[in-house]
Structures are given as structure tokens and as C-alpha cells.
């Protein structure tokens, strides 16, 4: 085989391979959104129970992704979970914003939902969200349901 032909094929192969890697990273993975909000600010919130929330889970408001979960820690002072959120700079939220851990669909992944409040003052870098709502844990819900049923029966 001629040297030039060989080089051509290998060149095509390498370009195709790197192209495939780029497609994987940009089109299929979310590298674009990963750093797109290069400028983010950090807020945190304490949750009594985070359920199955994971680091890098999306933070959504009205269904729009506005940030990502940066870190999850357990606090030995308050005995609850501290969730740190990276929010894109272009999305500002009032101080009294309500954060809750929600589930996409019945069995989908969990994410943090933000409901904007009415405060004039906006959340800033390092602020803590005061109003939070824990994840709905299926077992607890079933337990509460059974307990209610049982107490209903007691009436009779």
C-alpha cells in the first residue's frame, strides 16, 4: 500500500474517532451545560431528609435547570443534611425561596426544586435557604397511611 493512501486512511480513522469522542461529550453527555454557566454562586440549605438525592443532580425552578447539587454533607450540629447548590449567576432568587427535594415521575431521579418567594432581597454567595422541604420517602408515606387507617379503625 502506498504511504500516502495509508496516511489518509489512518488520518480519517483518527479524525472519526476523535469526532465520536466529541459527539459523546457534547451531544450525548452534557459537557456543554456542565461549564456553560462558568459563573455560578453557591447557596446551601439544610434538609431533614434528602432521600436519594445525589451530587450533580439538577436544581430546577419551574422545570428549568438553573444549577446543580455541588455537595452533600451531614451536619453533626443540627443532625440533618447540608446540601450545597451551584446556581448560575443569571438566575437570582429571593431570600425567602422555598427549596424542596422532588422526584421526576414515580421512580425517576431526585432533584432540588426552587420556588421563588416574594422577598425584595436576593440570595447571595454563601447564603442559606431557610425554608426547605424534605424528600418524600415512600416507606414513611406508607407507614403514615397504615397508621391513619389503624386509627380510623379505632373509632369503631
Amino acid at each position: 500500500m502506498q504511504r500516502a493512501t495509508l496516511d489518509l486512511w489512518v488520518g480519517l480513522f483518527v479524525i472519526t474517532g476523535i469526532g465520536a469522542l466529541l459527539v459523546l461529550s457534547l451531544k450525548i453527555g452534557n459537557l456543554e451545560t456542565y461549564h456553560s454557566g462558568g459563573d455560578t454562586y453557591v447557596i446551601s440549605g439544610n434538609f431533614e431528609n434528602i432521600g436519594g438525592l445525589k451530587v450533580r443532580a439538577p436544581v430546577k425552578s419551574s422545570g428549568v435547570v438553573v444549577g446543580r447539587v455541588a455537595d452533600i454533607q451531614f451536619s453533626t450540629k443540627t443532625y440533618d443534611a447540608i446540601v450545597t447548590l451551584n446556581i448560575e449567576n443569571r438566575y437570582q432568587f429571593p431570600k425567602d425561596t422555598f427549596a424542596s427535594i422532588l422526584t421526576a415521575g414515580l421512580l425517576g431521579e431526585q432533584y432540588v426544586g426552587l420556588d421563588a418567594g416574594g422577598d425584595e432581597v436576593m440570595l447571595e454567595e454563601g447564603d442559606t435557604i431557610m425554608r426547605t422541604n424534605s424528600a418524600v420517602v415512600l416507606e414513611e408515606m406508607i407507614g403514615r397511611f397504615l397508621f391513619d387507617k389503624a386509627s380510623e379503625n379505632d373509632d369503631f
Binding site: 469522542l21 459523546l24 450533580r56
Partner: peptide
């Protein structure tokens, strides 16, 4: 759905 659930670092970089 694919894009919001496939993570660059966790999935693609690890696969690579």
C-alpha cells in the same frame, strides 16, 4: 432526557 442524564465526567470520561 439523554443529555440531562448522561454526565460527562461520571459516564463518558469513565467509559473513555
Amino acid at each position: 432526557q439523554m443529555q440531562s442524564n448522561v454526565d460527562f465526567r461520571v459516564d463518558i470520561l469513565n467509559g473513555f
